[in-house]
């Protein structure tokens, strides 16, 4: 059973529908005990890093920490990926899970002397896909996915794919059982569905 964490923002429907389409059994929950017992966990994007404070308050942060330490597969989407890092300048006082080192930062206002529009919205490509990535199995370099975000995760050793916008940023992060995608797989057509399928089949 995949626990889909509901942190009140409500953007769960598309993710859950996609998982059901792939034959997965899901349970939308705010209950830390359900999270602890799940075989897999999905944390959908919530729209703002500050909103992830709710996870700590509900006891979900510690439940996720225990679950992933025990090998449970975890997938964070959008801000769900960012939450895997230590924090974000979007909400400096709110701590992330800290599974990956580094902090998420806003896109710069300019890049190579030209204005850089933020948020980064629309289709962009996945590049530099790590060959050992289980989440991106079957996804080719250059595959297009849908982004909508103003903050980005840094490049780390666990980065499994990058996207270029104002420089390279982590589009996908993956280390063992902990994974995250900055794009929205539920809005990303065939590539997005492939990513979710890979996760469901792990």
């Amino acid at each position: 059973m995949i626990a889909v964490i509901d942190y009140k923002a409500g953007n769960l429907t598309s993710v859950v529908k996609a998982l059901h389409y792939l034959g997965a059994e899901t349970l939308v929950t705010q209950d830390p005990n359900v999270v602890r017992k799940a075989s897999k966990i999905v944390l959908p994007g919530v729209g703002h890093f500050q909103a992830t404070q709710l996870l700590a308050d509900l006891g979900i942060t510690s439940a996720v920490r225990e679950a992933v330490a025990g090998g449970t597969l975890f997938l964070g989407v959008c801000v769900g990926l960012q939450w895997l890092f230590e924090g974000s300048t979007e909400a400096p006082e709110t701590a992330g899970l800290g599974h990956f080192a580094g902090r998420c930062e806003r896109f710069p206002a300019t890049h190579n002397g030209a204005e850089l529009k933020s948020p980064h919205v629309g289709w962009n490509s996945l590049e530099g896909i790590r060959e050992d990535s289980r989440l991106l199995r079957g996804v080719a370099n250059g595959g297009y996915v849908y982004y909508t975000h103003s903050w980005r995760a840094p490049l780390v050793s666990a980065t499994a794919s990058v996207t270029e916008y104002g420089g390279a940023f982590t589009g996908v992060v993956e280390r063992d059982n902990v994974m995250g995608v900055q794009f929205h797989p539920e809005k990303s057509s065939t590539v997005g569905l492939q990513v979710l399928k890979n996760f469901v089949e792990l």
Partner: peptide, 25 residues
């Protein structure tokens, strides 16, 4: 029926909506 997340920032003493996400339920 919707679920909505509103994000506000206080700028110069005034709270402003800066982002919202709304999803049909």
């Amino acid at each position: 029926a919707l679920r909505r997340l509103n994000v506000l920032e206080c700028r110069n003493g005034t709270w402003l909506f800066v982002r919202a996400m709304a999803h049909l339920q």
